[in-house]
Amino acid sequence: MTGLQVVFLLIGAVTLASAVMVVAAKRVMHAALWLILALVGVAAAYATLEASFFAVMQVAVYVGAIAILIIFAAMLTRRSMEDDPARLNKGWPAALLAAGGLLAGLVYLFSRWTGFSSPARALPEGGENIAALGLALTAPEGFLVPFEVASLLLVAAMIGAIYVAGDLRK
């Protein structure tokens, strides 16, 4: 077992454990903090894939922005759930069955797939890889239109969020 594999197993264990805590934590605030750890773990997994750009993006967007947003939402709505001790709904066994069944099905499918032997592709040295991504996102023959549409989507989501969350009646 190489060092990288050990590192990956460690990352995976930490990430999955914090993910479990996210769905199992009693208090929403704790769940949010565990979520941050899980997201950092995913960023580390990106790093092991040599997708350094996305590792940074993961920290900036998820840990930096989305997690903070979720913490704010958790704090703003904290009062409502305090008198309800049960954190799971009544149908949780069925949910467990569904999620577990899906996992079992996926693992079964993986066990029949033979494409795992392919080794990782070679990546060019230096920043070439990120430069190629940048070009793909901005070149007209690449993904310029989806990229622009995505930015439009963000603006629309921003306006929509302000509209929905803001109390316009006042």
Partner: peptide
């Protein structure tokens, strides 16, 4: 309740794929 429907949907998809 949305979650209940989603559970049913996932289970149905599982059964169908099996």
């Amino acid at each position: 309740r949305v979650q209940m429907y989603m559970v049913l949907a996932v289970l149905l998809v599982l059964v169908a794929s099996v």
